[in-house]
């Protein structure tokens, strides 16, 4: 297995976006790309990352391999790469390590690191194809700010989607808060658009703690998609055009 990115920045951001939610995980490498699927330790959220082979500078995977890695260790290794350095990952069949090579574009500095692989029992969950009742596309910075703001007032947020607006509400010991975002088009700046596709109105409650973990992916993508159906996990997708995506799934809080 050998995969090379032209710039380390994307991989650094991907690891920063998931490492606090899932500690150790397996990267599944096939000839179509690298992916990981992992639950957080309390089994409330699920993370699915796909890095497509087309998104790499070069990519070769002769035999499918699952590499168990501590994401905190991977983050440490990647700290040693400059944002504009190229990154090459190499793993030989049966080897218990993965190699990282960072090269500056002027080629005057090359650094190499070897990370020990771990044996990880991963339980892959089947994610059923879902026709969502409401899909909201919005700037990822708006979602990050909304979740951060409401976290000051409560632990949970109720997200209610109607035809032309989406409302985020919370309440706690000191008071209540809500943020309403209205659909708005923008032909010259599609990344600032708020688009709502509503088949059925949806209202669901989620733990803000997890949403704040998810918005660590905001630096990867200008836009985010919230896919919701009543009594179903929320899917928060950060698309990376040409490269792949990070999808987070979060189980709702439900009144017993």
């Amino acid at each position: 297995f050998e995969a090379k990115w032209d710039h380390a920045s994307t991989l650094k951001k991907v690891i920063d976006a998931v490492k606090d939610l899932i500690g150790d995980t397996s990267w599944d490498c096939t000839n179509t790309g690298m992916s990981l699927q992992s639950m957080d330790s309390s089994h409330v959220a699920l993370v699915h990352v796909l890095l497509k082979s087309e998104g790499f500078e070069s990519y070769r995977c002769d035999r499918n391999v699952s590499m168990g890695i501590s994401l905190n260790s991977m983050a440490k290794v990647l700290k040693c790469a400059g944002n504009d350095d190229s990154v090459t990952l190499r793993h030989e069949s049966e080897s218990s390590v993965v190699n990282f090579a960072f090269e500056s574009h002027k080629e005057e500095r090359v650094s190499e690191f070897e990370l020990k692989l771990m044996n990880i029992d991963t339980e892959h969950l089947g994610i059923p194809e879902t026709e969502y009742d409401s899909i909201i596309k919005m700037p990822s910075a708006d979602l990050r700010r909304t979740c951060a703001d409401l976290s000051q007032f409560g632990d949970s947020v109720t997200i209610s989607c109607a035809k032309s607006d989406v409302r985020f509400e919370t309440s706690g010991d000191i008071g209540t808060g809500n943020v309403r975002l209205s659909a708005r088009g923008s032909s010259d700046k599609p990344e600032t658009e708020i688009a709502i596709e509503m088949i059925n109105p949806v209202s669901l409650t989620f733990a803000l703690k997890y949403l704040n973990f998810f918005t660590k992916a905001a630096p990867l993508s200008d836009t985010v998609k919230l896919c919701m159906s009543n009594n179903h996990p929320l899917c928060v997708e950060f698309p990376m055009p040409e490269v792949g995506y990070i999808r987070y799934y979060l189980a709702p809080k439900i009144d017993e």
């Binding site: 089994h43 409330v44 892959h124 089947g126 799934y249 189980a251 439900i254 017993e256």
Partner: peptide, 14 residues
């Protein structure tokens, strides 16, 4: 009080 569900209530091991 709303109860936090597990993601495993919805997605089963494949």
């Amino acid at each position: 009080m709303a109860q936090q569900k597990s993601i495993m209530n919805y997605f089963k091991a494949s």
